[in-house]
Amino acid sequence: MSWWEIVVIALAGLWAGTINTVVGSGTLVTFPVLVALGYPPVTATTSNAIGLITGTVTGAWGYRHELTGQRNRLIRYSIASFIGAIGGTILLLSLPPDAFEAIVPVLVGLAVLLVAVQPFLTRWVRRRRESGEVPVGPDAGTRHAPLLYFLIFLIGIYGGYFTAAQGIMLVGVMGLMLSEPLQRLNGFKNVLSAVVNLVAGTIYAFVAPISWPVVGILAVTSTIGGLIGAKIGRKLPPTVLRVIIVIIGLAAIVRLLTQ
């Protein structure tokens, strides 16, 4: 590995760690870089997943204040992500490389759409609550819990297979089904993404081809990026954060369609 390749990978890891914490989809920075440098797609995917673990954990820790009092919910959501991530890693190691990627642009597009329309749906739900058409209070929305867990599980499968843009999907789904501030949803997203990366990375480390020099570089720089992202993301107004999510999501679709 030459010095300029080290610099390129380091910068990609820094940017991925930052953007993963703010909105997700940092893999769409590092994965193409590794492939362009000559790493096989599977090795690029597995090395990327392990290398970005520290960055996702750092980002999740950076949002701990937004998640105060949410421990029980986080545990339940994390279990769904944990199980899904195991399924995703099995898919990566057993299916042809392009078997799952064919539907990725569709999934990312749906997530972007969910993020974009969430404010309108939120206002619609608020009006219905104020008119008494739907219940309010701590148990409101409980009937949607099984569907939410199932969707988090499916996103965990996707994240365990490819990881890119799983954060956008999580924010989109939770934004429609939970009456929570966007910053808290972003905190949920960071924790669940960290769970998926930890599970997938641990499995990959034992049974998949790995470039450990790449892992080391990404681990260091993505950690720094995660700290930067937590500082930036927690200070962004919800509207600005939503616009960034949509823009990154659209960029992710273009990148996936042109690979």
Rank of each mutant, 00 (worst) to 15 (best):
L182E: 07
F120R: 15
R73G: 12
A12L: 06
G132L: 01
Q166R: 11
L34E: 06
R126L: 08
T202M: 12
P119V: 03
R255I: 11
R234S: 14
M174W: 01
L37Q: 09
N190Q: 06
Y39C: 04
G229E: 00
P238R: 05
I75K: 04
R129K: 15
S222L: 00
I157F: 03
W124K: 14
R123N: 13
G141S: 04
L236P: 11
L34R: 09
R64T: 07
A194Q: 05
P209S: 02
L110Y: 08
K231T: 10
R76S: 14
I210E: 08
A12E: 07
G17V: 02
L257F: 10
W15N: 06
G226F: 13
G226E: 10
Q166S: 14
W124G: 11
T43I: 00
A99T: 06
T54I: 09
L250C: 14
G13D: 07
L52S: 15
S211R: 07
W212V: 08
R184S: 12
L236F: 05
T21P: 10
Y39P: 00
T45I: 08
N186G: 14
G175S: 11
G233T: 02
T89A: 14
V7P: 03
G216K: 01
P135F: 02
G62V: 01
P238W: 02
S81N: 02
W15T: 09
I9F: 03
R71Q: 08
L93M: 07
A230C: 09
